[in-house]
């Protein structure tokens, strides 16, 4: 092949790669556009004030995101209460205490946990966690917020453990050595020096775990009972934004207010997860800088 031809191929392919790259980015950008265009169409029909301040999600009559939003946060909060301590303690154990051999075994186990499809976890919510909770609390039915929280905690754990572990590992050895040299023992060093130094990274871990819990659909759809009233406790049934979309999207005629309303709640969920993930990203970047 002569040089001219090779260079032609080169510029052609450069063009092709650029085209593919830009197309991909446009498609992904289309998600923003689709969500917000449809949300605007919704707000032309329903005043935003009603949407945010009402108390009932009863399509065709009342479109208020409030109960759904409370449910979403309620379940996610519960899951974080379980997953954050467990995740951070496990990460501390893995990076500070576990012998090398144990680490090699434990890490893939945690990655395996992340690989289990959400629908299988939801299934266990129905057959295992639900009946279990019903028995423990003496209630008749275990499909409630607590069930969802436990399952989401299991799903958020791998993220939290992995990132927390990176954060703890990233704390320079010199910090620990200085602390030990000053006479602090292993535990004081861990709790008073290492963990506080890893704090930004731990926040990143919690945020990314929370992002996962907020956006999960199948598990909450299967395990939380889906009643659209505002929950009063963890043993109440809840219906999250994701579950509402999953339940109602199939039943709506396209291009009606109800149809647009689902895009509107999706847009809100999108903004929330974006904010949570950006926060996580921000702290993760600080961790990276710290590391290098």
């Amino acid at each position: 092949m002569n040089t001219v031809k090779r260079e032609q191929i080169d510029s052609l392919l450069k063009f092709a790669f650029k085209g593919a790259g830009l197309l991909t980015i446009t498609l992904l950008g289309g998600i923003f556009f689709m969500l917000f265009a449809n949300s605007i169409l919704f707000f032309l029909n329903v005043p935003p004030l009603d949407f945010f301040t009402g108390s009932q999600w009863d399509p065709e009559n009342h479109y208020s995101i409030f109960p759904l939003l409370v449910s979403t946060f309620w379940v996610a909060l519960g899951s974080m209460l379980i997953a954050v301590p467990l995740g951070i303690f496990s990460a501390a154990y893995l990076s500070e205490m576990a012998p090398k051999k144990l680490q090699i075994v434990l890490k893939p186990i945690i990655e395996m946990l992340a690989a289990i499809p959400s629908v299988a976890i939801g299934f266990l919510g129905i057959v295992l966690v639900g009946p279990g909770l019903a028995q423990i609390f003496g209630i008749q039915n275990g499909l409630n917020a607590l069930n969802g929280s436990i399952l989401l905690a299991v799903m958020a754990l791998p993220t939290i453990v992995t990132i927390s572990e990176d954060a703890i590992n990233a704390v320079p050895k010199s910090h620990r050595e200085a602390s030990l040299a000053l006479g602090a023992n292993k535990w004081e060093t861990l709790f008073k020096v290492t963990i506080p130094a890893a704090f930004p990274g731990l926040i990143a871990a919690v945020m990314l775990g929370l992002g996962r819990a907020l956006g999960e659909t199948m598990t909450v759809l299967m395990a939380t009972g889906n009643s659209a009233a505002i929950p009063k406790g963890f043993l109440d049934s809840v219906r999250t934004i994701t579950a509402t979309i999953a339940i109602e999207m199939g039943e709506v005629p396209y291009q009606t207010t109800h149809y647009y309303s689902l895009f509107a709640i999706a847009a809100i969920l999108f903004l929330i997860t974006l904010a949570v993930n950006f926060t996580g990203e921000f702290f993760a970047n600080r961790l990276r800088k710290f590391h290098s």
Binding site: Q56, L221, G225, N226, S227, A228, S237, R239
Partner: peptide, 8 residues
């Protein structure tokens, strides 16, 4: 009633 469980 809004408290009715909505089963799948």
């Amino acid at each position: 009633s809004p408290h009715a469980m909505q089963m799948n």
